[in-house]
Design a protein around this nucleic acid. Structure first.
Length: 734
DNA sequence: GGCTCATATTTTTTT
DNA sequence: AATATGAGCC
């Protein structure tokens, strides 16, 4: 292998970046310029040409998925010599920090078995904090307090340093302190702690830092514009005297300020490392010129930025289509019909479409339209799998087995399924644990050991039953793989029976728990700690495979780093995009604009921009005006129905009619020639159906055969199993 | 202690 | 619209 094969297919600027010498390097680049590619090739180059062992390289990505993909690509670049990648540290900041904290647990205040608390756990802790401090939850919104604590941690501000200038700030400080105390009592960290504690560990223990500095010769960071202060400090500490820092980013794509990200880190980098090699990549290899002109029109309205000239060789593309929908249902129908038509005409595969929106709530109308059309779709994000109640419950059991200090987890499941341990009993348990000077969980075990306790006989029996189960599971935690522990929990708590309430929601909850068990089984025989840690740090985007051949529904945030041939951006209305909560803050408005910019630049070939004249929000429907971003797109590159600025929509009904024609065209085309994988059966196994002659039946299986759907149905009343054409069956409520 | 019904509150985005 | 919380009753 020579450098020529690693550098093959790269343009001169990209080669310059990949082969840059030691020292700080900052690659600033527009969308679609191959930023991530440069990072990938750089890793391969370091290993292959500079003889750096992968062991000495750390690469930080924004998501776990990006990490996995990058690793695969590096392996491919190095051909069959993948053994060369042993020890490469690649992952998100959070994952890397979690690992470091576990390894160096002796030097921190928590054990290596610490739990990672997610947003809902944090909320529970914060509510308890406010309760402990006798603060009125009405006056001090827990979420707001949480976000203050989070920003402090992202800025590496300790409670001691927290400015207490006025009364509110003083209260805030006390909240911050107590919240941290509670986390520690639970042997837990929140997401922000992972970064902050690692930074503190390095600052307090120069010898430990030196060890990591000696190990990592090269630090590479992707999506650098979305790093926060804590992450920046970490990077600087790790780079140390060697200063082999390679950061790649685009300030115009900074969309995570709400999470503490600060694109000014780009500026900081250049100031802190005055000898930075600055490399710009301006050529776009993704979109055609009309899309880039549109994106430029939008982003140029942001003040104080370095203007980039986005250019592409592709001059052939279609104009951006603007569509005025009547309401969100019309919007959704337009999207689905357009997709159906493009697929039917063999222009694109279903998987090549993306529908992007500002808020997750907007996905519902789109989903409905897909379901009504009988077409599959792929939803990315939304109610995250690991945030679902049933999944959290089961995970709480697992956490409890692993970390006996996890009081938040205990509170969650001690009475789920109901086992007679109510509010009163829990209060008594808390008080009693306090008296014994221990945690509620240890107190439970004390009960097993026959300690005198203040419980009624009934409560005592319930608690003991629970404690016995817990202790038995804990005894197996080092011997059984996670999946088996999980199975035992399900069996002994009869958790699935508890979920099975006969409703479809109950069924889907059961499915989710079984899915969780499948996930656990896929980890094989790893320690429980590994399983819990990885599961805490994956996002939904990570768990989606790319094989599903269906249009993708996702938020604009989730779209970062992805690309699609055809992109729909829906809900382009004032108050939706830009979001109403950003309207009175210029900084937030700029971020909304960047969000729009990110959305537009995901598209390779075609962009559809849709706004609705009316939209249902919180139940009632209200009139909206088109987004200001639409008017920032130059007229030469867009077509369709955009009203004059501030114009009133009397044309809505007319477009509604236009849509109906569209619908006819599209659905006709769909029946004749839509590709096979894009057909979905109307009925699936388990559905209850009704037939005129045979009466009530249950679907055994169903498949599309030529122009019709053939359904195998079992009729308990009349004559066993029969094969029926779908048109002759009516769905029934089960 | 647990369940049901009424009321309040929510939604911006996510590691 | 959909969920979370709280009061009141069994």
């Amino acid at each position: 292998m020579t450098s020529s094969s690693i550098l093959a297919g790269l343009n001169p600027q990209q080669v310059e970046a990949v082969t840059a010498g030691d020292g700080p390097v900052l690659v600033l680049a527009g969308p679609g310029s191959g930023k991530t590619r440069v990072l990938t090739h750089r890793i391969a180059y370091l290993v292959e040409e500079r003889d750096i062992r992968a062991w000495h390289i750390m690469a930080v990505t924004f998501t776990n998925k990006a990490a996995r993909e990058m690793e695969n690509r590096v392996v491919r670049l190095l051909l069959d010599e993948s053994g060369k990648l042993d020890g490469l540290a690649i992952g998100t900041f959070h994952a890397i920090c979690a690992r470091i904290l576990r390894r160096e647990a002796d030097l921190t205040t928590l054990t290596r078995d610490y739990a990672i608390f997610d947003t809902s756990d944090q909320l529970a802790v914060m509510k308890q904090t406010l309760g402990d401090l006798n603060l009125d939850v009405k006056k001090y919104n827990p979420r707001g307090m949480l976000s203050n604590v989070s920003s402090a941690k992202n800025e590496l501000i300790t409670p001691e340093d927290y400015p207490a200038n006025d009364y509110r700030a003083e209260v805030m400080r006390r909240v911050y302190i107590q919240y941290n105390n509670l986390l520690r009592a639970n042997n837990a960290r929140d997401f922000d702690d992972l970064l902050m504690h690692t930074a503190q560990l390095f600052q307090d223990h120069p010898d430990v830092l030196a060890r990591y500095q000696q190990r990592y010769y090269h630090i590479l960071v992707d999506e650098f514009q979305d790093t926060n202060m804590a992450q920046y400090v970490l990077v600087k500490l790790l780079a140390g005297q060697r200063r082999n820092l390679f950061a790649v980013g685009d300030p115009d794509q900074s969309i995570y300020a709400f999470r503490g990200a600060d694109y000014r880190n780009v500026q900081r980098f250049r100031e802190d490392y005055s000898d930075t090699q600055l490399i710009l990549l301006e050529q776009n290899y993704r979109s055609h010129q009309a899309i880039l002109d549109a994106a430029t029109g939008v982003i140029n309205q942001n003040p104080g930025r370095i203007q980039k000239e986005l250019f592409s060789q592709r001059k052939d593309g279609a104009l951006l289509m603007v569509y005025e929908a009547y309401n969100e249902d019309d919007e959704a129908r337009y999207v689905v019909d357009t997709i159906a038509e493009l697929v039917a005409r063999n222009k694109y595969h279903p998987g090549e479409f993306a529908i992007m929106y500002r808020t997750n709530a907007q996905s519902r109308a789109i989903e409905d339209a897909f379901i009504r059309a009988g077409l599959p779709y792929r939803l990315i994000g939304a109610t995250r799998f690991y945030a679902r109640r049933e999944v959290k419950d089961v995970m709480a059991y697992m956490r409890l087995i692993h970390n006996p200090d996890d009081n938040v987890g205990l509170q969650r499941i001690v009475n789920v399924p109901p086992r007679g341990i109510g509010k009163k009993t829990l209060e008594t348990l808390d008080d009693w644990a306090h008296e014994l000077g221990t945690t509620p969980i240890q107190a439970l075990f004390a009960l097993l050991d026959g300690f005198d306790s203040p419980f009624s006989a009934r409560a005592r029996r319930a608690l003991i039953t629970f404690a016995e189960m817990l202790r038995a599971w804990q005894a197996t935690k080092d011997d059984l793989p996670p999946a088996e522990i999980l199975t035992n929990v399900l069996k002994q708590t009869r958790y699935l029976d508890y979920l099975d309430d006969g409703t479809p929601e109950g069924d889907s909850r059961i499915e989710n728990v079984l899915e969780l068990r499948t996930v656990a089984a896929s980890y094989g025989e790893v320690p429980l700690a590994t399983f819990l840690e990885e599961v805490s740090l994956v996002s939904d985007v990570d768990t989606h495979d790319d094989e599903a051949q269906a249009p993708n529904l996702l938020t604009l945030h989730a779209a970062k780093g992805l690309e699609f041939p055809v992109v729909f951006i829906v809900g382009l209305e004032e108050g939706v995009l830009p979001h109403i909560r950003s309207m009175d803050d210029p900084n937030q408005m700029q971020e909304e604009r960047r969000l729009m910019y990110v959305g537009l630049t995901r598209a390779k070939d075609r962009v559809y921009l849709i706004y609705a004249v009316r939209r249902a929000l919180y139940g009632d429907s209200r009139a909206n005006i088109p987004s200001r971003f639409l008017y920032d797109i130059p007229e030469e590159v867009r077509e369709g129905t955009l009203l004059g600025k501030r114009g009133q929509s009397d044309a809505a009904q007319q477009h509604y009619d236009t849509m109906t024609r569209w619908e006819r065209v599209a659905s006709g085309a769909r029946q004749r020639q839509s590709p096979r994988e894009y057909q979905r059966t109307r009925f699936k196994a388990g559905d209850c159906v009704w037939h005129q002659a045979f009466g009530e039946g249950v679907v055994v299986s169903s498949m599309v055969r030529g122009p019709v759907e053939e359904v195998d149905v079992l009729f308990p009343g009349g004559g066993g199993q029969k094969t029926i054409i779908a048109d002759f069956l009516k769905p029934m409520e089960s």
